[in-house]
Simulated scan of single mutants.
Amino acid sequence: MSLKEQITDDMKAAMRAKETVKLGTIRLLTAAMKQKEVDERVELDDGMVLAIIEKMLKQRKDSITQFEAGGRQDLADIEKAELAVLSVYMPAAMSDEEVQAAVAAAVAETGAAGPQDMRKVIDVLKAKLAGRADMGKVSGLVKAALSK
């Protein structure tokens, strides 16, 4: 079952169970997925769906930070509930050792010799680590590996 089908099934289950927070969050996600399909005239695969979920997770984290700084704990709690629902669809995160091993393998695979080859390494890693590692952190590790 694809991720898109799983999300649709979860939406139906949330409707039957009358879970309003989960249902609302999944509806937001399906709306974002449909918008992407219409805009780009493509059928979404799991990687594209994960990218949408990642973007939504980042938005929720930013919102939580802003709401807590502004003293709006009620709104932060709503965002945290949505964050929990969206997090279910993300694959298990990789450990730091696994990420470093993947970076080393990608550097060897691409034959990267210096910082000018960073784009090649990142392109290889983006496909392998999508949704499983923070790409900002990965970028820093690649930069460190290529500047040696």
Rank of each mutant, 00 (worst) to 15 (best):
Q73A: 08
A102E: 07
G47A: 14
V85D: 12
P91L: 03
D10A: 06
V85M: 13
E82A: 12
L141R: 04
T110E: 15
I52W: 07
I26E: 01
S87E: 12
K148R: 13
E79Y: 08
D74E: 10
M90Q: 12
T25Q: 05
D62Q: 14
Q59W: 08
D39A: 15
E19L: 05
K34Q: 11
M90D: 04
A130E: 10
S2W: 13
E68S: 10
G71R: 01
I53C: 02
R119M: 10
I64Q: 10
M48G: 05
S2F: 14
Q73D: 11
A51Y: 13
K137R: 11
A69N: 14
A101I: 04
M118S: 14
K36V: 06
A92P: 07
I26Q: 01
A69T: 15
K18Q: 09
K36Q: 11
V38G: 10
K4Y: 13
L141Y: 09
A32I: 03
E37D: 13
G70I: 04
M90G: 04
A93T: 07
V38Q: 12
M118Q: 15
V124C: 09
L86E: 14
P115E: 13
L29M: 05
A84Y: 05
G47M: 09
I26V: 03
D46H: 03
A127C: 02
A145R: 01
G114N: 08
L129Q: 03
A112G: 03
R60L: 15
M33G: 00
K34V: 08
E43T: 07
S147R: 02
A92N: 11
D74T: 01
A133Q: 11
L44E: 06
